Simulated scan of single mutants.
Amino acid sequence: MQHLSAPWPDPAACLARMRPDAPVLFLSPATLQATARRFQCGFPGLVTYAVKANDRAEVLANLDSAGIAAFDVASPAEMRAVRAINPAAVLHYNNPVRSPDEVAAGTQMGVASWSIDEDSELDKLRDVPRGAEIAVRFALPVRGAAYDFGEKFGAAPERAADLLRRVAEGGWRPALCFHPGTQCEDPGAWESYIEAAARIAARAGVRIARLNVGGGFAAHRTGPAPDLEAVFARIGVAVTRAFGPDAPALICEPGRAMVSEAFTLAARIKAQRDGGETIFLNDGIYGGLTDLRDMGLTGRVRVLAPDGAPRRGPPRPRRIFGPTCDSLDRLPDGLALPADAAPGDYVLFAGMGAYSVAMSTGFNGYGLRDVITVLGLTGHCPHES
Rank of each mutant, 00 (worst) to 15 (best):
V24S: 06
D186N: 13
L297S: 11
I68S: 06
R165C: 10
L63Y: 00
R143E: 15
D340I: 01
V371M: 13
A156V: 10
G171P: 14
M109W: 10
V237H: 05
Y355S: 13
P323W: 09
G351V: 07
A218L: 13
V303C: 14
P224E: 14
A74L: 15
A230I: 03
R126G: 00
G144Y: 10
G236Y: 04
L176R: 09
V301M: 07
G276C: 04
G255S: 11
P317E: 14
C252W: 12
R293F: 10
L297W: 07
D127K: 06
A69E: 06
A36D: 06
L15W: 07
D64T: 12
A88H: 15
D148I: 00
V142F: 02
S5V: 06
L250E: 10
C381W: 01
R319S: 14
G367D: 08
D345K: 12
K52G: 13
W172Y: 15
V111C: 03
G365Q: 08
E78K: 00
K270W: 05
A249L: 12
I235Q: 06
A69V: 13
N364G: 13
T35D: 05
N54S: 07
Y93Q: 01
A238S: 14
A69C: 10
A146K: 12
E151D: 10
R300W: 06
R311T: 12
G344E: 03
L32K: 08
A242P: 02
R311G: 05
A225T: 08
G205K: 06
